[in-house]
Design a protein around this nucleic acid. Structure first.
Lengths: 196, 196
DNA sequence: CTGATTTCCTAAACTAGATCATTTTTAAAC
DNA sequence: GTTTAAAAATGATCTAGTTTAGGAAATCAG
């Protein structure tokens, strides 16, 4: 399966498209290879692309005044990643997005996306549904942060996204879940010793 | 200004509409009066409406296993409120949404909203933009929860939404910000004594 | 008005999770 | 492969925020 076919399959899971429409959609993306540790988003620049991951993995994070970094999002194959606020509102980025492995992405520019949405009601629907699901996902995370303990958040993450937990460094997962690496290490250790 | 005119003004701030389109949009909503302490959403039911607040205020919250409640959202005049996940994904609600004051809302049903979006590209665009801004707002909140201390979160809320802070009970604000009422009381007290 | 219910405040004891410092393990780079 | 750097583990100490408990204001229903 080519990379274009992959994103066509992806969009067809959300909306029906004719072959010609699928062609137009896929043609709006550009394939880019990214090396491990390479940044695709950096603070203060206005983000120009939304990125669909074909292969590899990424981490989006912010660094606060005290030098602490907090992971905002992960992405692996078939996920999207960017600095959402910067891309949507076309304001300067506050995040870094870095490749955790050698990766391949399909990027679409802000302008191309606007054109797609204007040109065809179906594309508008697709991006509307994407935004809704993004919001629904984020709301779940807010609820989780407000109501669960560090250990409960970890357990739930392991249930829902075991394939991500395997691939990302522990410090990144800890800061995604809102705890220190040390504390996550302890949680894991406790579980490992209980099993035996 | 009638309540219909109010929501027409609202949508026109996002997209341009002809008078006829504005008419169709406004006609999809139904005005409902809600008494203080009345619930408009309760757990386990699938949420049928998205609600635009004409007058009054609301609080959306979840109650966890230990009986603790966490405020997920507030709404005052010109804001929307519902159990977002339940409405968008048409799954059973996990939240309560309660009126904090005697209120008036305009509600639109899930079916009517689907019809609007299908019938006119512009309405699809409107709801796409709403979803994007909702996601952007939620992402800001996630970042705030991950990176800031309780006091910083409070300060920032007071800066951005002073008019909400005034109108909602302290325990509701505390649980929105992810802290106990007692701790919020202490923060406020500390600030009050410093000023003198 | 007035009794009842909600909301808010204060303060002491407590704990989940953070911080700090050091060691061990793993992975990157030459 | 060997050196070097990054990541993870471990233990000791500390602290931001919680819990518990009591009383004082404010709000509300009748």
């Amino acid at each position: 399966m080519t990379n274009n076919q992959q994103i066509i399959e992806y969009i067809k899971r959300t909306i029906d498209l004719t072959d010609q429409e699928a062609e137009i959609f896929a043609a709006s993306f550009r394939e880019v290879k990214i090396k491990k540790r390479q940044f695709i988003v950096q603070p203060n620049f206005i983000v120009k692309h939304r990125n669909y991951v074909i292969k590899g993995s990424f981490r989006a994070y912010v660094v606060d005044d005290h030098g602490q970094d907090s992971t905002i999002a992960f992405a692996i194959e078939d996920w999207w990643i960017t600095d959402y606020n910067s891309y949507i509102l076309q304001t300067p980025a506050t995040m870094f997005v870095i490749a955790l492995e050698d990766s391949i992405i399909l990027e679409i520019s802000y302008e191309k996306e606007q054109m797609l949405k204007q040109s065809n009601h179906k594309f508008e629907t697709f991006f509307r549904i994407r935004a809704e699901r993004t919001a629904a996902f984020m709301q779940q995370r807010i609820i989780s942060n407000l109501t669960q303990t560090a250990e409960e958040r970890y357990d739930r993450f392991m249930e829902k996204y075991p394939q991500i937990a395997e691939r990302v460094p522990q410090y990144a997962l800890a800061s995604y879940l809102g705890m220190t690496t040390e504390f996550l290490s302890r949680i894991r250790n406790k579980k490992a010793s209980k099993k035996s």
